[in-house]
């Protein structure tokens, strides 16, 4: 397969696969953690456990910030080329 290997831009294709996979899976997982944090915050607040509720809210906030940051970074990288 040397001819095909020469034609296909293996490095760029591999980078595309890695970036897309990491971004696609990573953002969803982090966002899910954020929703988990929100749900736990609601439950723990109703159970009157403020410290644990605060921790859950912090997890949710950090996760949602991370998702927003990933989106902004993605756009900046796109426009920078």
């Amino acid at each position: 397969m040397p001819v095909l290997a020469e034609i296909v831009e293996t490095k760029e294709l591999l980078q595309t696969v890695v970036f897309a996979f990491v971004a696609g899976v990573g953002v969803t997982v982090i966002f899910s953690v954020g929703i988990w944090g929100v749900a736990r915050f609601v439950d723990l607040s109703q159970e009157e456990r403020p410290a644990a509720a605060g921790a859950a809210a912090a997890v949710a906030g950090l996760a949602l910030l991370a998702v927003l940051a990933a989106m902004v970074i993605g756009i900046v990288v796109m426009t920078g080329k």
Binding site: E12, Q15, T16, F19, A20, F21, A23, V77
Partner: peptide, 9 residues
């Protein structure tokens, strides 16, 4: 993610 990464390259 797939479209943006592909577009970048």
């Amino acid at each position: 993610a797939v479209i943006l990464a592909s577009t970048h390259f």
